[in-house]
């Protein structure tokens, strides 16, 4: 039994992990979008070389990867909620959830490939 009082967000999950993850990933994505917009605004890249130069910095690659990883995680929580609401059959829902997880992991590998190639 989890004690009702004295709960802290960094403790065990209490069933609120997804709720919190959804909000943390959202805020991280907004921060990246603002940062990215400022960088593009200042450097004003005109061609492929200049665009690639922006993404050549290791910090930019890591930040972009974290942004897209946040996007995948955020999408997982959101799509899982939608599936739980509308798909009543456990078998179909599990199948769809597996498809969503596999596709999101594949997207993440693709993301790494794009950023580090």
């Amino acid at each position: 039994m989890v004690k009702q009082n004295g709960r802290i967000v960094t403790g065990a999950h209490y069933g609120l992990k997804d709720w919190l993850a959804q909000r943390v990933t959202a805020v991280l994505m907004v921060a990246y979008i603002v940062l990215f917009a400022v960088i593009v605004w200042i450097s004003a890249p005109q061609n492929q070389v200049e665009w690639a130069a922006i993404f050549s910095y290791p910090g930019m690659r890591v930040a972009s990867f974290l942004f897209l990883a946040s996007l995948m995680w955020h999408a997982w929580v959101g799509v899982r909620n939608v599936l739980m609401d509308y798909i009543k059959s456990a078998a179909i829902r599990l199948t769809l959830q597996i498809l969503v997880i596999v596709s999101l992991l594949a997207y993440l590998v693709w993301t790494a490939e794009i950023l580090w190639s």
Partner: peptide, 23 residues
């Protein structure tokens, strides 16, 4: 949200790849 998941994410990655891959 659902539309941004699909086809949003693959389209975004495809666009990013085209932007960075080559001239």
């Amino acid at each position: 949200g659902v539309l941004l998941f699909f086809p949003g994410i693959p389209l975004l990655l495809y666009g990013l790849q085209m932007l960075l891959e080559s001239a």
